[in-house]
Nucleic acid binder design. Structure first.
Length: 768
DNA sequence: CATTTAACATTTTTT
DNA sequence: ATGTTAAATG
C-alpha cells in the first residue's frame, strides 16, 4: 500500500471544507490521515501548531506522530509537541494555560492552578465522592427524600453523564441551554411513543403494540395509590395500544425538586473537586468548553485552521461541541465508522457520526449565543471502502453481524452501510462455528488443529502459528479461564487486557501488613501467619492469647515497617521480604501513587482504597514481557484496531454476548425524556414507591442491542482470513444461533473431551 | 392465535 | 431487579 487509492486521494487532497469520512475497518485510515496531515502542513504558511488532530487513545496519538515525522520535513520534536492528542489531554493543556479563571465563569470561586490532576482511578473517585456526598447530605437536609433512594456511585455516574452531554450548572442556574436538555424534548418523545405504540401487523390482523406488551410488567411494581391502574393504561383484553393520553401524562411531571437537587449536588461537587485540585475526564472537558465558550480571546488563541478527528464514532456530544469551538475555519474532517462505535458506556454518542449534519447545525445554532460562527454548508461525504485486511468472504459475512437479532422477537432493520471491497486476494477464507460441553477445551483443541495445517493457511503457502491467532471475547472472564487452562496444557497463550491487580497474592499481603500497621488488625495477622505456613489452629492460638506472642521475626519486621514514612517504602519492603518483586508489584506501587497524587493519603484511606478495588474487581493493565509466538486472548474492546490471520470469537453464550444491558440507576438522564427518577420517597408512608411515569417512559426507550451487534462486527472484522465462533453446548446465545453459516461448515460438537487423551499428547509436546 | 402468567437465568466494556 | 422464554389460558 504505497500509493493512496482513489477515495483516499480524495480525502488527502481535499483539505479545505468539512468532510464526514466513512472509513470502514482496514481501509488504511491511519495511512490516509497522516498523509492528509502532511499535505496540510506542507502548505505555505501552515504550521503543525495550526492543525488539531484528535485521536481516541494516547497510544494512537503517539503512533500518528511517529508516522507523520516520517512524512514531513519538520523536526521530530516539533511534531511531538504539536497538538496531536486525545481530547482529554488537549483540554488538560488548555486548562493549564488559561484555566485559572475558568471556574468563575460558572460562579465557582476556586481557582485552577497549573498542576491540576486528572482523576484516572474510578475507584479513587468513588471513594472521594462518597466522602463528599455524606458531607453534602448532612448540610442539605431539604433533599432528604432523595438520599433515601440514591446511592453515591449512581449519582456520580449521572453527574459524569451530564458533563459529557454538555450540561453544566452555574451558581444559580444552568449553563447555556442545559436546562432545556434536562426537561427533555416532548416533540421527539411523541414520535418515539407513537412508534412504540403502533399495533403490530400480522398476516391475520393486528397484534398489540410493543409498548403495551412491555407494560405488562407494570403490575409488579409498587406504586402509590394515586397512580393509574394497569388496566386503565393498557385497556382490557384485545386492546391493541396503550391509551394515547398517557403519552402526555407520563412525560409531564414536576421535576423542580429533582433538578434543584441535582444542580446543587453537581455544583458543589465541582467546587469540591476544584478545591482539592483534581478533575475527572468529563469535568476537564466541561471546563474547557465553558472557557472557550465564554472567552472569545482565549478561543481565538486556541483555535485551529484545521481540525481532524479520528475514531469519530467514539466521540461524545461535548467533544463535538469542543471541536467546533476549536475550529477557526470550517476545515473539519471527521473520520470514523459508525459500525465500530462501541464505547457508549464511556458516553460516546453514535449519533455524532450517524446524524453529523443535523448535530452540526444544532450546535452551531447554540453557539451563536457565544458569538461563534462557522460557515459550514453541506458536509461532503467520503467513503473509504477498499479493504486491505480481510478476505472478501470475511467482509461479506461480517455485515450479518449488524442484523443479528438479540432475542427471538427482535427484528432488526436493515442497516445502511458502505460495503467493503477486499484487496487482499485471500481466497481460502474459512468461517466455522462449533459448540462443546467444555468450550475452553474445545477452543484450545481447535487451535491445535489449525496450526501447521495446510487447509488453514495464513496466506498463499504460509502455515498458521500460535502468534497468528486471537481469541476474542465479550467479557474478560472466559479469557482468563482459557489462559489458565492453556497453561496447564503448555499452550502458549497470552492474556492481554489487565488483571484484578488488588486480588493478587502480592496485594493481599500488602493489605494485611497495612492493616497490622494501622490497627494491629487480627484479619491482617491471620493472613500473614497463614502465608508463613502456620496452620489455622496455630494461628488461632497465637491470636487468641491475651498477650499475643507473635513470632519474633514478624514483630521485628513490623517495627521495621513502622519506621518508614512513605507507603512506597513500606510496600517495597513487604514485596522484597516475600520475594514478590515483579511487574505486578511494580504496578501496585505505581497505581497507589497515581491514585493519591492529588489527595491526601494515610494508611486508613489506602486500606479502604485497596478494599474498594477488591470489592469492585477493578482492572489494571500490567505490562507483561510479551512472549513472541503465542495466541492472543483479549476482549473485543481491547482488539479494536488490531488484526489477526485467524480469529476465534468465543463465549458467544446466553447473557454474555449479547450482554443484557440492565443496571439502571435511580436517577437517569436520557434523550429525549431528560432527567428522570425511577423511584420516589414518600415521607408520609416512609416508603420508596416506584414512579409510574418513569415506568412508561422507560418502556418507550427500546432496549438497545445495536451496540452489541457493532461489537460483534468489530470482532469479526479483526480476522484476515479465518473466523471461528464458539459457544457452550445448550447455552448458545441468539447471536450464535442466528449466524448464517452453511451446514457444511458447522461442527455441531467438537469432541474435545472425548479425544482429550490424544490431545493431551499434542499439548504436552508444546511444553514451553 | 394473542395474551397472560409464571418460571427462569444473569449482572461488561475503560479514555 | 430485569427481561426473556416457555407454558397456560381465553
Amino acid at each position: 500500500m504505497t500509493d493512496p487509492n482513489k477515495q483516499q486521494k480524495q480525502l488527502i487532497e481535499n483539505t479545505e471544507g468539512t468532510y464526514l469520512v466513512d472509513a470502514g475497518a482496514g481501509t488504511g485510515k491511519t495511512f490516509t490521515i497522516t498523509r492528509r496531515y502532511a499535505r496540510i502542513v506542507g502548505k505555505k504558511g501552515v504550521e503543525p501548531e495550526d492543525v488539531f488532530l484528535a485521536t481516541f487513545t494516547r497510544n494512537a496519538a503517539e503512533e500518528m506522530s511517529e508516522r507523520i515525522v516520517e512524512l514531513t520535513e519538520f523536526e521530530p520534536g516539533r511534531i511531538f509537541e504539536a497538538p496531536i492528542s486525545t481530547f482529554h489531554s488537549h483540554c488538560q493543556k488548555i486548562l493549564e494555560r488559561h484555566g485559572f479563571n475558568a471556574p468563575e465563569l460558572l460562579g465557582i470561586e476556586e481557582k485552577i492552578t497549573e498542576e491540576v490532576d486528572v482523576m484516572e482511578s474510578q475507584v479513587r473517585e468513588r471513594q472521594e465522592f462518597k466522602e463528599f456526598y455524606s458531607g453534602f447530605k448532612a448540610e442539605n437536609t431539604e433533599y432528604n427524600d432523595f438520599y433515601r433512594i440514591t446511592e453515591a456511585s449512581g449519582v456520580l455516574g449521572l453527574l459524569k453523564t451530564l458533563a459529557s452531554k454538555g450540561i453544566f450548572p452555574t451558581e444559580s442556574s444552568w449553563f447555556g441551554e442545559a436546562e432545556k436538555y434536562l426537561d427533555g424534548d416532548y416533540e421527539r418523545f411523541k414520535d418515539v411513543f407513537k412508534e412504540m405504540n403502533k399495533p403490530r401487523e400480522t398476516s391475520n390482523g393486528q397484534r398489540q403494540s410493543e409498548l403495551r406488551d412491555r407494560l405488562y410488567s407494570y403490575r409488579w411494581k409498587d406504586f402509590p395509590e394515586d397512580a393509574p391502574d394497569v388496566a386503565e393504561i393498557r385497556g382490557g383484553r384485545g386492546t391493541k395500544s396503550v391509551r394515547q393520553d398517557f403519552m402526555r401524562r407520563s412525560f409531564e411531571e414536576n421535576r423542580d425538586q429533582l433538578k434543584s437537587f441535582v444542580h446543587d449536588l453537581y455544583y458543589e461537587y465541582l467546587e469540591h473537586c476544584l478545591s482539592r485540585n483534581y478533575l475527572n475526564f468529563p469535568f476537564i472537558m466541561a471546563l474547557s468548553y465553558v472557557l472557550l465558550h465564554e472567552r472569545p480571546e482565549i478561543r481565538e488563541k486556541e483555535s485551529f485552521e484545521y481540525v481532524m478527528i479520528d475514531e469519530f464514532q467514539d466521540t461524545n456530544e461535548i467533544q463535538l461541541k469542543l471541536a467546533l469551538l476549536l475550529s477557526e475555519e470550517p476545515n473539519i474532517a471527521a473520520v470514523g465508522d459508525w459500525k465500530q462505535s462501541i464505547y457508549s458506556f464511556q458516553h460516546a454518542s453514535v449519533e455524532n457520526i450517524q446524524r453529523f449534519q443535523k448535530r452540526l447545525e444544532k450546535y452551531l445554532e447554540e453557539l451563536q449565543e457565544a458569538e461563534k460562527t462557522l460557515d459550514i454548508g453541506e458536509v461532503e461525504r467520503i467513503e473509504l471502502k477498499q479493504n486491505y485486511r480481510s478476505g472478501q468472504k470475511i467482509l461479506d459475512f461480517s455485515e450479518h453481524a449488524l442484523e443479528l437479532p438479540a432475542h427471538r422477537r427482535e427484528n432488526v432493520p436493515e442497516p445502511e452501510l458502505v460495503s467493503l471491497e477486499s484487496k487482499t486476494g485471500f481466497e481460502s477464507s474459512k468461517i466455522e462455528r462449533f459448540t462443546s460441553e467444555n468450550e475452553p477445551k474445545a477452543v484450545l483443541s481447535r487451535i491445535q488443529e489449525i496450526i501447521d495445517n495446510e487447509k488453514y493457511l495464513k496466506e498463499e503457502g504460509e502455515i498458521l502459528e500460535y502468534g497468528d491467532i486471537a481469541v476474542l471475547t465479550r467479557t474478560r472472564r472466559f479469557g482468563l479461564e482459557l489462559q489458565e487452562l492453556a497453561s496447564t496444557y503448555g499452550i502458549p497463550v497470552e492474556y492481554e487486557g489487565g488483571v484484578e491487580l488488588f486480588k493478587t497474592p502480592q496485594a493481599l499481603l500488602l493489605l494485611a501488613w497495612l492493616r497490622i500497621l494501622n490497627s494491629d488488625s487480627l484479619r491482617g495477622w491471620a493472613v500473614v501467619l497463614e502465608h508463613a505456613g502456620y496452620s489455622l489452629d496455630e494461628a488461632k492460638a497465637i491470636l487468641d492469647e491475651e498477650n499475643k506472642s507473635y513470632p519474633p521475626d514478624m514483630k521485628a519486621f513490623r517495627e521495621k515497617l513502622e519506621s518508614f514514612d512513605t507507603v512506597k517504602a513500606v510496600a517495597n519492603t513487604v514485596f522484597e521480604h516475600y520475594g514478590y518483586e515483579n511487574e505486578v508489584s511494580d504496578r501496585i506501587i505505581e497505581v497507589i501513587q497515581d491514585a493519591f497524587r492529588s489527595t491526601f493519603m494515610n494508611t486508613g484511606s489506602l486500606i479502604s482504597f485497596i478494599e474498594d478495588n477488591i470489592e469492585e474487581g477493578e482492572i489494571y493493565q500490567v505490562e507483561t514481557r510479551g512472549s513472541e509466538n503465542s495466541v492472543t486472548v483479549q476482549t473485543v474492546h481491547a482488539a479494536k484496531g488490531l488484526e489477526y490471520p485467524a480469529v476465534f470469537i468465543a463465549d458467544v453464550n446466553k447473557g454474555v454476548f449479547p450482554s443484557q444491558n440492565s443496571g439502571f440507576s435511580v436517577l437517569k438522564y436520557q434523550d429525549p425524556v431528560g432527567l428522570r427518577q425511577r423511584k420516589k420517597f414518600d415521607s408520609e408512608y416512609g416508603f420508596s414507591f416506584d414512579n409510574w411515569r418513569y415506568e412508561i417512559l422507560s418502556k418507550c426507550m427500546a432496549g438497545d442491542y445495536d451496540e452489541e451487534r457493532r461489537l460483534m462486527y468489530v470482532a469479526m472484522t479483526r480476522a484476515e482470513n479465518h473466523l471461528f465462533f464458539s459457544a457452550e453446548e445448550g447455552k448458545e446465545s441468539p447471536f450464535y444461533e442466528n449466524l448464517d453459516l452453511d451446514e457444511k461448515t458447522v461442527e455441531p460438537e467438537l469432541q474435545a473431551v472425548e479425544i482429550s487423551e490424544e490431545d493431551r499428547v499434542t499439548f504436552d509436546i508444546e511444553d514451553s
